[in-house]
């Protein structure tokens, strides 16, 4: 932990509300400890702004340990910043060097309207899950947990997909603002488990339809989503979603 400090210039997207035009504000960020997280650096800037009576930069954050999926901005063109498999809150300033200009923008997609500055509305993700990203089991209906064994490999694959935190970086990085990776991860999780099979055909159709309805683009297989995903969700999930879709098309009715 060799702590040192660096001086940076920040260019941050400011936008008062969804309907008004946004612009960039420039702030000097001097004496930033390299042990700070990116969000702690923003805290420091915001504290200064507040001291000056100015409105701080609005940014979403909560757990600050990379699991809640609340934070995320595009930093110098990278969703969640330049470090692989890392959310913005877990990115540390030692990844930057003194004299650098950092451009911070919100995740941009028409399906994610900007609330303020770097804060966006990801309600569309909730609605995709509502369309079918669950197993229809009522509380109390469940059979004994061991009544259905699940091969370890399938369970592990399901867990790989289930690791998605719903942050929206995949959408932010996709040239088509596609939600394919997010949608596919949930479909893949549930189709690898026997508990998810009864609804698999209906699920994939409904979730894809909702994804379209929300105004996300389609997948051009360019892998930006996989590259920026903080939880390393693979494009293979999209392959699985497409396979599920084909299966659903081939089957009649449910």
């Amino acid at each position: 932990m060799a702590e040192k400090t660096i001086d940076l210039t920040l260019k941050v997207w400011r936008q008062e509300s969804p309907d008004v035009e946004g612009h960039f504000d420039t702030f000097p960020a001097k004496g930033i400890s390299t042990d700070m997280s990116f969000l702690e650096m923003l805290d420091v800037i915001n504290n200064q702004l507040e001291k000056e009576g100015k409105e701080p930069i609005a940014f979403d954050h909560d757990c600050r340990e990379g699991i809640c999926g609340m934070c995320g901005s595009v930093v110098n063109g990278h969703a969640h910043g330049p470090q692989e498999a890392t959310t913005l809150c877990q990115l540390h300033m030692r990844k930057f060097h003194t004299g650098q200009t950092i451009v911070i923008e919100p995740f941009r997609a028409d399906a994610f309207p900007i609330v303020k500055d770097l804060v966006i509305d990801r309600g569309a993700f909730d609605r995709i899950i509502q369309a079918g990203g669950h197993i229809t089991v009522r509380t109390g209906q469940a059979p004994e947990a061991h009544s259905v064994p699940v091969p370890k490999k399938k369970a592990d694959t399901a867990m790989d997909s289930a690791a998605c935190i719903g942050c929206g970086a995949c959408v932010a990085a996709c040239p088509n603002a596609s939600a394919s990776l997010f949608t596919a991860a949930k479909i893949s999780q549930l189709c690898h488990l026997p508990q998810g099979h009864p609804e698999r055909n209906r699920r994939v159709i409904a979730m894809v339809q909702q994804m379209d309805k929300e105004g996300f683009g389609s997948c051009s297989k360019r892998y930006e989503c996989e590259a920026v995903c903080p939880k390393e969700i693979k494009v293979e999930n999209i392959t699985t979603m497409n396979r599920e879709y084909l299966r659903a098309l081939a089957s009649s009715g449910e």
């Binding site: 669950h134 089991v137 059979p143 699940v150 369970a155 592990d156 999780q189 488990l193």
Partner: peptide, 8 residues
């Protein structure tokens, strides 16, 4: 039953 992928 909800599809929570517990370790197996």
């Amino acid at each position: 039953a909800q599809g929570v992928p517990f370790a197996r």
